[in-house]
């Protein structure tokens, strides 16, 4: 999606490494991405490829041992290296987070209303009474039925889906510009997931919130994202508007991922899934190679000796880091559509 206005969030060349006993591990290696106002960007990638570390580094949520370089600008304000007091103001008010397991982020001994209310009392200096009334509104906004009663309930009295709705209500309490949702539906059943995705989309439509949603589920991406960022071993390997990415994946990993997923209407009796051979690499450990080279059917010497740059392919809004990007061979999804 090309938007004329400057992005709300602009990440440039972000790298994160952690010192460990066996040396420094590089978790994120030169990630750049933009989030426009009211845009939903989906981030996909395998376990350990650096999605959560990227997300946490945006508002300085990583442990103190993390070494973060590069730039994260929120409406022009630099957040990398900002003071903790400044970051605390940003968190909650301007950038809010929701995570996979809502129970661990909720306080079990406080009512739902008190927890949402506290956010409002601290950040918006609301009175306790006003905060409670606003909490009821927020719970209604995120689709909790009989919010006026639920507001006095405790987290353990709620189902997983309801708790995630409470987390979202808390996250949007102060009207943040950016909502970072790290696997918000992974622990939920599909019937409940559909409701949560609906709430996120609705918030974007009504409040204009920009959303960065992290998932490993291509169905969730197809459902909710305007634009997609594909990560592999600590790097962004492809970025494109959602339709373009699914119809014309350019990076060989993206293409492999799309054809590895079972498609509706296909059965093992007549069809084989395309496998991606080899192991998932743990980290970006090869500065002078494509990190996918070990598993890529098209890899050659060049791929093993030089890292491909992230470049525009077929338009500036579609970028991929691949020496031999896929041409427009149809993907399994396209085949299924025929």
């Amino acid at each position: 999606m090309t938007t004329a206005s400057a992005p709300v969030l602009e990440i440039r060349d972000l790298s994160v490494s952690f010192p460990t006993e066996t040396g420094t591990v590089s978790a994120v290696d030169g990630v750049s991405l933009d989030l426009a106002a009211g845009e939903i960007v989906g981030m996909v990638g395998e376990s350990g490829c650096g999605k959560s570390v990227t997300a946490m580094s945006i508002a300085g949520l990583l442990p103190g041992s993390a070494r973060v370089t590069g730039s994260v600008r929120l409406d022009g304000t630099q957040l990398v290296g900002a003071r903790e007091s400044a970051l605390r103001r940003v968190r909650g008010r301007e950038i809010a987070y929701i995570f996979q397991e809502p129970m661990t982020s909720l306080n079990p001994v406080l009512t739902v209303g008190r927890q949402i209310g506290e956010v409002l009392q601290v950040h918006e200096r609301m009175s306790r009474r006003a905060a409670r009334a606003r909490a009821v509104e927020l719970l209604t906004l995120v689709g909790i039925p009989s919010a006026a009663q639920r507001v006095d309930g405790y987290p353990h009295q709620l189902s997983g889906g309801m708790r995630q709705r409470v987390m979202i209500a808390m996250a949007v309490a102060c009207g943040p510009k950016v909502l970072v949702a790290d696997e918000p539906t992974t622990a939920l059943d599909v019937t409940v997931q559909a409701g949560i995705l609906h709430v996120l989309r609705d918030l974007r439509d009504r409040l204009g919130t920009s959303v960065l949603i992290i998932t490993h589920d291509l169905g969730v991406i197809a459902d909710i994202a305007d634009r997609v960022v594909v990560m592999y071993a600590g790097r962004v390997v492809e970025q494109a508007p959602v339709d373009d990415l699914f119809a014309h994946p350019r990076h060989r990993y993206t293409a492999g991922l799309l054809s590895a997923s079972p498609q509706p209407g296909r059965h093992a009796g007549t069809d084989r899934l395309t496998e991606i051979p080899g192991l998932v690499p743990v980290l970006a450990s090869q500065p002078d190679a494509c990190t996918f080279a070990d598993r890529c059917p098209a890899a050659d010497e060049r791929c093993r000796t030089a890292a491909p740059p992230l470049e525009g392919i077929g338009g500036a809004d579609h970028v991929a880091a691949c020496w031999y990007p896929c041409t427009t061979a149809p993907t399994a999804a396209q085949e299924a559509n025929r």
Binding site: T191, V192, A194, D243, F246, S261, A333
Partner: peptide, 22 residues
């Protein structure tokens, strides 16, 4: 409710939203 990994098709599908009070 199960999203399909195809944005064009997914856009035309309407999940039935059940309450999530299991």
């Amino acid at each position: 409710a199960a999203p399909v990994a195809d944005p064009v098709r997914q856009r035309h599908r309407q999940p039935v939203l059940l309450g999530d009070d299991l």
